[in-house]
């Protein structure tokens, strides 16, 4: 599963310039031969390892690399960089 995890992390990094959070469906497209359940397992593992974090709008949930993204800092009380 290490390879698959690498693919996911690389995907996050390659997109990080424009957006840091992605829907579950985006990862299905990375693994066209895998069933959704298998892809979910990889992501859940990455969450458990502390590599990936969930992000929620309340109604929907997205995945992102831990610590990455503009909202993280703001939410924990820091001011955004001017």
């Amino acid at each position: 599963m290490a390879d698959e995890k690498e693919i996911i992390v690389e995907y996050f990094k390659s997109k990080a310039k424009t957006k840091t959070k992605h829907y579950f469906k985006d990862f299905l497209e990375l693994f066209p031969d895998k069933k959704p359940r298998e892809v979910k397992k990889i992501l859940s593992d990455l969450v458990k390892e502390g590599v990936v974090d969930y992000w929620s709008s309340g109604s929907t949930t997205m995945y992102g690399l831990k610590g990455l993204g503009k909202q993280e800092e703001v939410e924990e009380g820091e001011q955004p960089k001017d």
Binding site: K21, S56, S57, G58, Q71
Partner: peptide
């Protein structure tokens, strides 16, 4: 304001972030 925090470690739901 809404916040993206979702829950406790390993969970993707159960918490709604508010500021």
């Amino acid at each position: 304001k809404h916040g993206g925090i979702v829950g406790v470690f390993g969970y993707g739901g159960g918490v709604i972030g508010r500021y």
